[in-house]
Design a binder for these strands. Structure first.
Lengths: 194, 194
DNA sequence: TTCAAAAGTTGAACTTGTTCAACTTTTTTG
DNA sequence: CAAAAAAGTTGAACAAGTTCAACTTTTGAA
């Protein structure tokens, strides 16, 4: 199976048996997404949660002024979820778009609930994953408040060089919360001195 | 017992029996914290998770330049946690300070683990709580990127008027990510027009 | 392979928010 | 209650980041 990556990823977060992994994996379906296609678009209800096997996705929202705000990027081994829409089955504020031809494993809401009921370890898994994600969001907010755009840019490209390499400057700037014009100026100033 | 608030709060997130609630509550110990005292300070390992019964807390970090960044405030019914320090038992980056005389229920790490092992519903509870918190952090990041300081100030005071009423302007500004001088100017401009 | 669309660059004027310093008001504490 | 400390206000100069418009470069599709 092509589920090795998912199995490894789960084993990093919880102690789990192979048969439990089999059960979990049996609920996921593979799907390919072409470059530019949307797995979710703003206004729709999110019916799937996804685990990225290959490729790259961008999760973003568009505000009232029409600006794109990127929440995160997801490459191999990352999860794609709009917790709000999936949990409450309300229309999503988010768009999830493939930045290259990609492969994901998807699980729908009713299967996810079956899994939760059937295997308590799945509750633990998503509890641990959510708490780790929370830590990351808190740290990002702190960086947004205490670092300049330039520092944030370098932090991003140094922390995720493989992801940054796949992205356009516009996509990076929408993640950093700055205009692409200003990112261009940051890069120029970064070459000249320090 | 004075555990009613905790029991109600848990019942809002998961289906649970009274005897399970009894078990959970039995692991929590009440504690009073005097105004100004710290439940946690930066550099220490966080040994407790807390549920606020009364009073008000501020969770914040101090960056290299000495600026305070407030992650959140917690009043009656809110949880106090430094997931990073508690989960990994590493020194905390956070301070948790009582802004008034307060009462909390505390649970330590080993009891929390006992609870997780004993009652799967506790895994579910914290999974649901963490996912709700994640949604809130994502929304806050979006607001930080697409709203001005003035809009964020009004959003905060309108969403949490009871909390805002307990806070100094310096505390609010450290939550909004602006200087207290600028908050003062926002308030003045808000009176004159709009 | 060409040409249209998207991405990136640059500069000038502008807006938002910061810094610092001086001052006033409120709160706390001996 | 008096003094000290903390909080809030104000202004002027400044820094960080935006906006808009013109331009160049790269990418992709017919």
């Amino acid at each position: 199976m092509s589920n090795d990556l998912l199995r490894q990823s789960i084993k990093r977060d919880v102690k789990i048996t192979d048969s439990q992994l089999d059960t979990i994996c049996s609920y996921f379906e593979p799907r390919t997404v072409k470059k530019g296609d949307f797995l979710l678009s703003q206004g729709k209800v999110y019916k799937f949660e996804g685990f990225v096997l290959e490729g790259c996705f961008r999760v973003f929202t568009i505000d009232k002024k029409g600006n794109e705000i990127t929440l995160y990027f997801a490459v191999k081994g990352w999860w794609l979820m709009d917790i709000d829409s999936f949990m409450n089955q309300t229309p999503s504020d988010l768009n999830i778009q493939a930045l290259e031809d990609s492969k994901v494993l998807l699980i729908n809401k009713s299967n996810k609930e079956l899994l939760y009921d059937q295997l308590p370890v799945v509750e633990k898994l998503f509890r641990v994953m959510s708490q780790k994600a929370l830590i990351a969001w808190q740290r990002r907010l702190i960086r947004n408040h205490c670092q300049t755009a330039k520092e944030r840019y370098h932090h991003f490209t140094e922390t995720y060089p493989e992801i940054a390499a796949k992205l356009t400057d516009r996509q990076i700037s929408s993640y950093l919360g700055i205009t692409h014009e200003f990112l261009s100026k940051i890069k120029r100033s970064g070459i000249k001195k320090e």
